[in-house]
């Protein structure tokens, strides 16, 4: 292809946008609207996911040891478990620390009666925090198989609730994404179809003159890509500023509702922008290719 042809085709794509100004605006608006909705869902979900992750980090599995297990053996197991991929962090709590914590928490001044005895002599433990609570059963099964381990305590119901919640969130977000993509593809293909019917005469002339299929189709595809690009950048910018404003508003006006901390917009915006532009350009490209193939029997 000649460079001049490339620029001509590109130029035609842009001119088509202007020539069908209203349809262009309508489809950019609809894609903007659906991607904006997607952006809102995405930011809310990102916050939920973050909160879930933060909360699940606090869920630990406690491993207690058989009588007579030496501290070296315990620390060796700690080192071994730390190498496992699902493990985030392990805190070793010696018997002495366990006792002093207990005294502080429940006994206060009455602890003096115990003298120097440590009733929790065999209560040294490893508190294991996981990266992902859904991995808990695997770790528990392993820990229980180790000979020096007497008992593994875990809160199975909490872990499974968190796992279920996380799964539900990803199913919901996938569903929403698929729905929005379907709607946008439908809209873009409608716009391109209208564009094709508006320019059917021009297309007919092109065919009589001897235009190749590519030459006839390319401007429509370029048109779709540009619509997708604008339709994704616009809602990305809106989401960025709206989110920032909403977070600052909520944290100043509802500071007593400090149940969850909001993610800063920078934490997820990069990924959101990538997804939006990818989805926008993708549906612009796909929508126009499909429509051009269906309506442009050249």
């Amino acid at each position: 292809m000649r460079i001049s042809t490339f620029f001509y085709t590109l130029g035609q794509g842009f001119k088509n946008l202007v020539r069908n100004g209203w349809y262009t605006l309508a489809s950019i608006a609809t894609i903007t609207a659906s991607l904006f909705l997607f952006g809102l869902f995405y930011s809310v979900l990102a916050n939920f996911e973050n909160a879930l992750q933060e909360a699940s980090k606090g869920i630990s599995v406690s491993v207690f040891f058989r009588e007579g297990t030496s501290e070296e053996e315990m620390l060796a197991l700690k080192a071994e478990l730390e190498r496992r991929p699902e493990v985030n962090e392990i805190v070793y709590l010696s018997a002495e620390e366990a006792w002093s914590n207990f005294k502080e928490q429940y006994l206060g001044e009455y602890s003096a009666g115990f003298g120097t005895d440590n009733p929790l002599e065999d209560s040294a433990s490893l508190n294991i925090y996981l990266k992902d609570v859904s991995q808990q059963p695997t770790l528990v099964a392993y820990a229980e198989s180790v000979t020096i381990v007497r008992q593994v305590n875990r809160s199975e119901s909490v872990a499974s609730t968190f796992t279920a919640l996380g799964r539900m969130l990803s199913v919901i977000s996938m569903g929403i994404i698929v729905l929005l993509i379907a709607v946008s593809v439908f809209l873009i293909s409608n716009t391109v179809a209208v564009g094709i019917s508006v320019r059917s005469e021009e297309i007919g002339i092109m065919k009589y003159i001897g235009a190749t299929d590519f030459f006839v189709r390319a401007p429509f595809v370029i048109e779709g890509i540009i619509i997708g690009l604008i339709g994704s950048l616009l809602p990305a910018v809106i989401t960025f500023f709206l989110y920032r404003y909403a977070v600052s508003y909520l944290s100043t006006h509802f500071s007593m509702l400090n149940i969850m901390s909001f993610l800063p917009v920078e934490a997820f915006f990069g990924r959101l922008l990538l997804i939006m532009v990818g989805v926008g350009v993708g549906i612009g490209f796909l929508g126009s290719i499909v429509t051009v193939r269906r309506h442009l029997r050249v």
Partner: peptide, 13 residues
Amino acid sequence: HRQIPKFRRKLGI
């Protein structure tokens, strides 16, 4: 099908 444009370029309509 691919040859049709090449053919039509030899005609003026």
